[in-house]
Design a binder for these strands. Structure first.
Length: 408
RNA sequence: GGAUGGAUUCCCGAGUGGCCAAAGGGGACAGACUGUAAAUCUGCUGCAGAUUGCUUCGGAGGUUCGAAUCCUCCUCCAUCCA
C-alpha cells in the first residue's frame, strides 16, 4: 500500500490542490513539506498530534518534513474558526511556547541528520519592512477574493481587525519563503487552514511561476460534529504535567461508540488490516477497541510504561482487581490536618475533585461520594491522619473520578 | 469624527427601582438505567463558619431607605454615515 493510499484509507485526506501531483511526490519520497504550528499555548494538544503523526508517516515514506514554529505568525493570531479576537500574546510568551513545542516535537519526530527540519517564521517575518512587503507581495492579493474566503466570512458579522486579516498573508509568505529557502513544495495543515494554504500556493505561482501544492487533513470531529480533544477544562494536552497520562488514557477510553474506529484509523499506527477487522465489532465489544485506542495513543504520546500504568489503574478502578498502585493520587501534609483530622469536604477540595466547598457538599448531598466503597451521607464525616496513612484510602466522586489519598 | 444599538453568571439569553444570586435554554456536575458508550429521566449549577451572611450583571463615580435596572464620565463591540 502506498503512503497516499494509506492516508486515504485512514480518512485523513480532506482537500488537495492536485491529487495526481501530490500522490506522485509523496509516494516517491520527493516531497519537502511543511506544517505550521502557532505557539498559542505552552503545550501541543491532540490537534497538533494529528499533524505530527502525518509528519511521521510521510517521513517514514522518505519525505522530508519541515516543522514550522509560528514565532512570527503567533504575533498576529489566526482568526480562522474563531468568533472572537484572540488576545495578543507577548513576545516572551510566544518564545516560551515555541520552546515547549520544540521539546515536545523532538520526542516525536526525528530531526537528526537532515531527516527533518525545524524552523521559526520569526526569523523572516520579524524583520520585514512594511513598504517593501506591500510592494513585493501586496499586488498579488485581491482583497475582494480574500473576503470571500470562508474563514473571514464567519468573522464579517462579529468584526475582524486588520491585524488578523493579515494572517493569511503572513502564512502565504511563509510558504513562499520555505519554497525559496528549502525547496518546500507541499504544505499540509488542518482542513480549517485551506484558504490560508491556497494563499500560499497562489503566491508562489504568481511570484515565481512555480507550482506548489497544499493538502489538508480531516479535522477530528466526533459524531456530534464537535472538535475532539477538548474537555470542559480545556484541551487534552500532550504535556504530562497538563494532562496526566491517566487522564489522557481515560479520555480516549471514553470516546463514543461511533467515534472509536475513526480515531483508531486516524490517530494510531496500527496496520490497516488489523483495523479493518474491528469494523465488525459492535455493542459492548467496542469497549475492547476503546482500550486499544487508549493504549496505543498513550504509548505514542507518553510511553509504553505510562500506558501500561494507566491501563492497569483503569482496570483496577472500573473492572475490579488489578493493582491500585498507579491510580491518580493526592498527597496531604501536616498542615492539611486540624488536630490530626480532616473532614470529607476539605478532602474533596484538596484532592481537586471539587472546585469549592459548596461543590463538594453538593456532590455528597447527592450521594455521589464514596470512600473505600462506603457512601458518604454525613457532611461532617472526618478522618484521622493515621487512618488515611494506614492503608489504601480511595475517594470516588461520581462514576469516573477516583483519587488515592496519601499522607505526606 | 458623527448617529444609533449593545456589554448580564461557563456559553446563549430574559430582566428597565424592591418579590433578584437574577427566567429559559445549552453545557458542566450528581443520581437512575448501562458497557467507563449513546439516548432518556431526575436533581443540581456564585461563595462561605449556610433557616443566615458576603460578593456578582463592562469600568469608575453619583441619585435613592433600596440599583443589573435611573444619572454622569470612561472602555470595548456592532450597524449606518464620513
Amino acid at each position: 500500500m502506498t503512503i497516499f493510499d494509506e492516508l486515504k484509507a485512514r480518512g485523513l485526506i480532506a482537500q488537495l490542490t492536485d491529487e495526481e501531483e501530490i500522490k506522485e511526490l509523496i509516494n516517491n519520497g520527493k516531497a519537502t513539506f511543511y506544517i505550521g504550528f502557532d505557539p498559542t499555548a505552552d503545550s501541543l494538544h491532540v490537534g497538533h498530534f494529528m499533524a505530527l503523526c502525518l509528519m511521521k508517516r510521510l517521513q517514514m515514506a522518505g519525505n522530508k518534513p519541515i516543522a514550522l514554529l509560528g514565532g512570527g505568525t503567533g504575533m498576529i493570531g489566526d482568526p480562522t474558526g474563531r468568533s472572537d479576537m484572540r488576545s495578543m500574546m507577548t513576545e516572551e510568551t510566544i518564545q516560551f511556547n515555541c520552546d515547549r513545542f520544540q521539546e515536545q516535537m523532538s520526542k516525536f519526530i526525528d530531526f537528526s541528520e537532515g531527516k527533518a527540519m525545524m524552523v521559526n517564521n520569526a526569523d523572516w517575518l520579524m524583520n520585514l519592512n512594511y513598504i517593501e512587503l506591500l510592494r513585493e507581495i501586496g499586488p498579488h492579493f485581491s482583497v475582494n477574493r480574500m473576503l470571500t474566503a470562508e474563514c473571514y466570512k464567519q468573522r464579517m458579522e462579529k468584526g475582524l481587525s486588520f491585524l488578523e486579516f493579515n494572517y493569511m498573508i503572513m502564512q502565504s509568505y511563509d510558504f513562499l519563503e520555505l519554497y525559496k529557502r528549502h525547496g518546500c513544495n507541499i504544505q499540509f495543515g488542518g482542513d480549517d487552514q485551506w484558504s490560508n494554504m491556497l494563499g500560499g500556493t497562489d503566491l508562489i505561482r504568481r511570484k515565481l511561476g512555480k507550482d506548489a501544492y497544499a493538502m489538508t487533513i480531516t479535522l477530528l470531529l466526533n459524531s456530534e460534529g464537535k472538535k475532539m480533544g477538548k474537555t470542559q477544562s480545556g484541551a487534552v494536552w500532550l504535556d504530562p504535567n497538563k494532562t496526566s497520562p491517566f487522564d489522557f488514557y481515560q479520555y480516549w477510553r471514553n470516546v463514543g461508540d461511533e467515534d472509536v474506529l475513526k480515531c483508531i484509523r486516524m490517530l494510531t499506527f496500527l496496520p490497516m488490516e488489523e483495523i479493518d477487522k474491528m469494523n465488525e465489532w459492535e455493542g459492548s465489544q467496542l469497549n475492547e477497541a476503546k482500550d486499544i485506542l487508549a493504549f496505543e495513543l498513550t504509548t505514542l504520546v507518553h510511553s509504553e510504561e505510562e500506558a501500561s500504568k494507566a491501563r492497569e489503574a483503569s482496570k483496577a478502578l472500573f473492572a475490579g482487581g488489578g493493582s491500585l498502585e498507579n491510580i491518580p493520587k493526592t498527597e496531604l501534609n501536616e498542615s492539611d490536618f486540624e488536630d490530626g483530622m480532616i473532614d470529607i469536604v476539605s478532602l474533596l477540595v484538596k484532592a481537586e475533585m471539587a472546585g469549592s466547598r459548596s461543590e463538594g457538599r453538593r456532590a455528597i448531598e447527592q450521594g455521589g461520594v464514596t470512600v473505600n466503597g462506603d457512601k458518604i451521607t454525613d457532611l461532617k464525616t472526618s478522618y484521622t491522619k493515621e487512618l488515611i496513612a494506614k492503608e489504601e484510602f480511595i475517594i470516588k466522586k461520581g462514576k469516573k473520578n477516583f483519587k488515592k489519598i496519601e499522607v505526606q
